[in-house]
């Protein structure tokens, strides 16, 4: 008999208040509550977190690496989005 698959969940942890949740790994669990507990028992054993998100891995839509150029190259030619693009005389001071 093939073993039925236990759903996979992605785990995100907020290390300290003020920081965003960050992806730390994954766990297997049948439902969201058990996934949350598994994440707590697996990824916060050394005081790594104050808040946990678990998301079904299947719910994540990812960009295709093959689209990397189309998605991310065009931005490289738009330096006017960065403050260093603009010349301000030093005597004006910090801006």
């Amino acid at each position: 008999m093939t073993e039925p698959k236990m759903p996979l969940w992605e785990v995100f942890i907020r290390a300290r208040s003020g920081l965003a949740h960050r992806h730390v790994g994954s766990v297997h669990a049948a439902d969201a509550e058990m996934a949350l507990q598994a994440a707590r028992d697996t990824y916060t054993r050394r005081g790594e977190g104050l808040s946990i998100w678990v998301v079904p891995s299947a719910a994540i839509t990812a960009s295709d690496p093959a689209d990397k150029d189309a998605l991310f190259e065009p931005t490289a030619s738009k330096p006017y989005r960065h403050p260093t693009f603009y010349d301000i005389p030093p005597e004006v001071g910090h801006m």
Binding site: T2, E3, P4, K5, M6, L8, G25, S26, V27, H28, T42, R45
Partner: peptide, 19 residues
């Protein structure tokens, strides 16, 4: 046990299930 868990998860990213 935790390390086994992290590593199975890393292998799973290559398209093979823990089962």
């Amino acid at each position: 046990g935790g390390h086994g868990l992290y590593l199975y998860a890393a292998a799973e990213t290559l398209g093979v299930s823990r089962e």
